[in-house]
Write a protein that binds this DNA or RNA. Structure first.
Lengths: 350, 350
DNA sequence: TTGAAAGCGGTACCAT
DNA sequence: ATGGTACCGCTTTCAA
């Protein structure tokens, strides 16, 4: 079984074994100079005893934990997993460990993640909030360690951020649907009072406007950002407005739910109703028909956010605040457009 | 911006502020006695200064980090996300933080996760290995902290474990397919030299045998446990053996790939070919037709593993080694059986 | 009840 | 190049 506490070798064990001081052990083990034979003796003792430095002791002394946290709304949403992957790559390459925190889209949990920085268990935080309340801004301002926000924050708040352009992304989707001949385009959104919810709503309206289509509030519905909610919302909308010929869904999970509802009511996709999602997750290729989806650059956002955080952690001088934005692009697949019923056709437009 | 290092209040700051010793501050803050006015003064000072205990110092002193790690093969596989969710619940309730580690099904990374326990950043590990090599057993034996394995380990190794019964699960699937009238049942497996791969292969063979069907090696193919591999394998198999009337896929990702391949070759599911997956992930309900899948109790395994680990961490006496097993059950949906083309029908059998 | 002080396991400065 | 030692922030004896 595992060794009892107090059994593990420390630098002092090594020091005694090698007949040198703890200071020398520390130096040798950290690769700083030393006479060849000293180095050899220390190395030998360390290897023989299976010495591993205590991370907590090192952290306490060094003032940093070499851990960073990523707090996201929902670990069940593939889009965040895509971010995790890229963030992981970057932070590990920089010698940090990644802590994951699924907040359940609960502002209180997001605030808790921010406040938790004060206990120094994490050197920095990548926060992907779904809402940004005044309380968020206040905590961001007094945060105990560097934070990078994936999402939109007001200009006044001096915090690194990487945002997607959801508005343009939604507009892109609507224009594509209109170009494909759709006229009664429904919106299945997440909560109205979230940042992505509001932005996608705005982009939807803007898209209709640009195309000269009327904006019928009856075509818009709000729910949660998941498949169950999406299915229910789609069912409702279809019952209320049977003539809908397209559904713009605020993310891929909602879209998957919508596809289910459409099937349940005997509609063909895309012949009767076209569907477009957002996030371009793996789900878009797993469902049927393959889902046309707005790619908001989640991988890119993850990578950039991680790079910003690392830069701020490692930099000696304080780098200026960065506000990055990633451009959306539409990835066309079978769930809309005219090429119905075939395998996935990739066509990308900016 | 965030405060400069060395700025954060410590117990000593509080002590000076309240006019007491650091010992008293520690006591009061930990809820151990104190004269009422002392308590009040300390509390007031702590609140005023926004004191938060340094987690690293506490860990060093206390000999534990209050963090546990879950190392899984692939964070992109929904089945592990389901485990994460339950593990998270349990460990957080017990006051631990959860660290996630995606090993990429690389034995070297799994071993690294085991060895990393020696640096004491984590108090324990839940390991979900895809292979169990002699090196694994050796590291398990000398692990620096408690480990719970999700998977099968040899009897001799005294380590807590929770395993699924993949063999029975696979057999269940095959018998179901046979009962539905299928006779040429293909197997799309993951790597042959992995524990789940081997077990599912065995169960597949056993199922055929029990049903009195011949075992045709041409119907078996090995690949990776992901959708891309599943699609390629299915395409291959269908070309090689056009008469296949069912595909048993070693997990849901492979099954999703298979569905894609079937569509690509113009076959109808389940009319022409029935498909069964394993893991009963969210994916099974997201794809079309909804996927019949063997539920190996991933949520249950996650919960149990976390509970075993916490028990071992918190227990004063060393609890005896537990070897738990979770029973599989088949969740029938549209991708096989006779109720094709309708919405998901749940029917559970043990 | 309270304070002084000894660590926990490293790191880094300062002499030597 | 090396050893002695103060210190990171907190917990926990041990005396007073």
């Amino acid at each position: 079984m595992h060794s009892r506490p107090g059994t593990a070798p420390t630098i002092e064990t090594i020091a005694r074994h090698a007949g040198v001081s703890t200071a020398s052990v520390s130096r040798v083990l950290r690769g700083l100079g030393g006479r060849p034979d000293t180095v050899a003796r220390v190395r030998a003792a360390a290897t023989e005893l299976g010495y591993v430095p205590n991370a907590m002791a090192r952290s306490l002394r060094g003032g940093q934990s070499r851990q960073v946290t990523f707090a996201m709304p929902d670990i069940g949403n593939p889009v965040y997993i895509a971010m995790v992957r890229r963030i992981q790559q970057v932070v590990r390459a920089a010698g940090y460990r990644l802590l994951l925190h699924s907040t359940g889209a609960d502002p209180a949990e997001e605030l808790a993640a921010l406040r938790a920085l004060a206990d120094r268990h994490s050197d920095g935080l990548i926060l992907c909030p779904i809402r940004v309340t005044p309380a968020h801004l206040e905590e961001l301002a007094r945060s105990a360690a560097p934070v990078v926000v994936i999402g939109s924050v007001p200009e006044e708040v001096p915090v690194d951020s990487v945002r997607a352009d959801s508005v343009t992304g939604a507009e892109l989707a609507v224009r594509h649907l209109v170009a494909a001949g759709r006229r009664r385009i429904g919106l299945l959104n997440g909560p109205a009072d979230t940042v992505p919810g509001a932005a996608r709503h705005r982009g939807y309206e803007r898209g209709l406007e640009v195309c000269g289509l009327p904006h019928d509030p009856a075509l818009t519905s709000f729910g949660r950002f998941d498949a169950v909610s999406g299915e229910a919302a789609a069912r409702d909308l279809l019952a209320r407005v049977p003539g809908v010929d397209a559904l713009f869904c605020a993310n891929d999970l909602i879209a998957v739910g919508a596809l289910r509802a459409l099937r349940g009511t005997g509609r063909d996709v895309p012949a009767d109703v076209a569907v477009v999602g957002v996030d371009n997750t793996d789900l878009a290729e797993a469902c049927w028909p393959p889902l046309t989806s707005v790619d908001l650059g989640s991988q890119e956002r993850g990578r950039l956010a991680a790079e910003l955080l690392i830069a701020r952690l490692d930099a000696s001088g304080r780098p200026p605040v960065s506000r990055l934005a990633v451009q959306p692009r539409l990835v066309v697949r079978g769930s809309c457009g005219s090429t119905a019923g075939t395998t996935a056709t990739h066509k990308e437009m900016s």
